[in-house]
Write a protein that binds this DNA or RNA. Structure first.
Lengths: 352, 352
DNA sequence: AATTAGCACTCATCATCTGAGAGTGCTAAC
DNA sequence: GTTAGCACTCTCAGATGATGAGTGCTAATT
């Protein structure tokens, strides 16, 4: 509400209050500040400043005779202007890199890679971690395979350079010969191989659709499946890890709070909404308290960052915590992980 | 410890105490029993009987002036001899059936089917639910496919009548021609198609292994992969759902208890141990308190049942709760779900 | 004019105390 | 063998009061 800048001393005090509250989870009083961070100011002066900060909406008091804690507006100011990004130490870097790298790189282990990524994110930050994506658009279509299982069932496999992405059963009324299947596979592969999915979506498919009219119904179905795949796969794929970590923080000592959070986390839809909102903006983003729209996350903040394949944003990673979360550290970790993941994925994408 | 049977009246009282405690979560006193379940006995008589039951180890007192609660031994006696299995009502039956059935039966949705199954199990019982499996042994090998991705990478797909089960990347030093791939695919498919995996394991593979010696290294690798697949897939595949349900029960109102439980649930290994122990015995099984060996489950019970494909045990489902869980209901649900799941899976297995 | 010391006041927290209530075991009567 | 009666134990919930951290305000100090 109050957009104007704060004078340096007020900034200092807001920063100190926030830092201390983040660390201790206790409202912080003027005395504590004076003692702990010798700023060359007496408690009384600090009190006056804090009173001003409260009046302007940056701090608040849980009750009249308690210390101050930052308001959402205070946190916002803190993360925008005051926070010191806390460099990762070597051990952390090493753990992250080895977790995200240390894979046999088998195609079907993309999933494992992503799982590992959120796991390590949760492990390092000690907060619940989330991940969305990745979208397929920048992947390169490699192969479609039609496999006859029996007379009436055909298995359609779509393979990309990032791994098998879809396998669906198609039921046909009339038996189809192996030759027919081969012919269709051949046509599809010839037309599509080597194209990225976003190109497919915009141009080639419509081209194919026209040809399709003249072909038989199996062909029809295969194309249809392909189309559906392109659209559907973006939506799913939510990864979660480290939810219990939230219990380490006193704001969730009341079971009810925790429970409603858990229930929210169980609904893929709401997580999707939360993360997806950010995927427009590229890069790192912090949402504090009511800036997240979900009801149960009112007392939480989320630090999200997009990640990319070959320069295209394909997904989001995020860390969820109480508003009183260790922004400095989390931001550094999320930033690093998102970039590192982008690099690893982009390499995979080129390599294959 | 005390193996001999209880006389009918003691049985009655043990049953009433257990039933009431399961419902109320409060220690139950003689007065309550006399008032609530008019057994034609005075509180004093009931007290005497309860004193006996306590002496024999079936009941215990949380503190001296509280009512009684069942000991583990008491629960054991209860589930073995006293418990009334509580028939499922129509709505429950319907929900279960529709959840497990209501699928398009696409091959790759086996996973979804299993997920749905634990979900509905958790939903109906209101306890956390687990699932292990299914093992692949009774599945029928349908197809192996070698797909060239580029010069040095070949994708190997193994398809069964239950769906694609493995796709792995093989890296070769020397480029392999399409013709070679076709030849190898042809041989493998010819040899293996239509055989169940347990047969493969015991006989055909060794046969192939001999032939293999004379063939090239790609062939070698493909077979090797197949073998590894057969062994590895049994182990993974743990499904969980409804963990939060445990919070509805007062024994977990202390966060620490819940937390240690959660941590245990996060370790696949311990869940695996817990469920796998039962997979020897066919059918339904109840483990109470320290009968489960895991540390954190001391205050819990598990009701498990095996499920089958074509008469062969392939996996386990289970429901976890406090020792004070509603055995009557849970047993009925687990029993039904295990049988129904067996039926659905067996049908799938035949059908394809 | 800004800073600080001093003081009265507020409020949460914690330990202690109290009474009520539920339940027991024992004894004696039925 | 069963039950009524009673003294006793122990938990739980609420009340009380001391403690201490923290504030706002005023007046003195720099």
């Amino acid at each position: 509400m109050n957009g104007r800048e704060l004078d340096p001393r007020k900034e200092l005090i807001l920063k100190v209050v926030t830092d201390d509250y983040i660390e201790s989870a206790e409202p912080v009083g003027s005395r504590t500040i004076a003692r702990k961070y010798n700023l060359g100011l007496s408690p009384a002066t600090i009190r006056n400043e804090m009173a001003d900060l409260e009046e302007n909406g940056y701090l608040q008091q849980p009750h009249i005779s308690a210390g101050r804690i930052p308001s959402h507006q205070g946190y916002r100011y803190y993360v925008d202007s005051l926070m010191k990004q806390q460099a990762l130490n070597k051990k952390e870097l090493q753990v992250i890199q080895s977790c995200i790298n240390n894979l046999t790189m088998d195609l079907d282990e993309l999933d494992l890679l992503l799982q590992q990524t959120v796991k390590v994110l949760a492990q390092i930050t000690r907060y619940p971690s989330l991940m969305l994506g990745p979208k397929l658009q920048p992947s390169v279509f490699t192969h479609v395979q039609l496999i006859p299982l029996n007379e009436h069932n055909i298995l359609v496999l779509v393979v990309t350079n990032m791994g098998v992405i879809e396998n669906k059963l198609i039921t046909v009324d009339v038996p189809v010969s192996q030759m027919d299947l081969d012919r269709i596979s051949y046509v599809l592969n010839k037309k599509l191989r080597g194209k990225t999915f976003d190109k497919l979506k915009t141009s080639f498919i419509s081209e194919l659709r026209e040809e399709m009219e003249v072909h038989d119904s199996l062909f029809h179905k295969a194309i249809h499946l392909l189309l559906r795949t392109l659209e559907s796969r973006d939506k799913d794929r939510i990864y979660l890890d480290g939810i219990i970590n939230i219990l380490d923080h006193p704001e969730f000592k009341e079971l009810e709070k925790f429970k409603s959070l858990m229930e929210m986390m169980d609904e893929e839809e709401s997580i999707y909404r939360m993360l997806e909102k950010t995927s427009g903006h590229q890069g790192l983003q912090i949402s504090i308290g009511e800036e997240i729209e979900e009801e149960a996350f009112q007392q939480c903040s989320v630090v999200t960052a997009t990640y990319e394949i070959g320069g295209k944003v394909v997904g989001t990673i995020g860390v969820l915590g109480p508003t009183r979360m260790d922004y400095g550290h989390v931001v550094a970790v999320v930033d690093f992980v998102s970039h590192y993941l982008s690099k690893v994925l982009s390499d995979m994408n080129k390599y294959n």
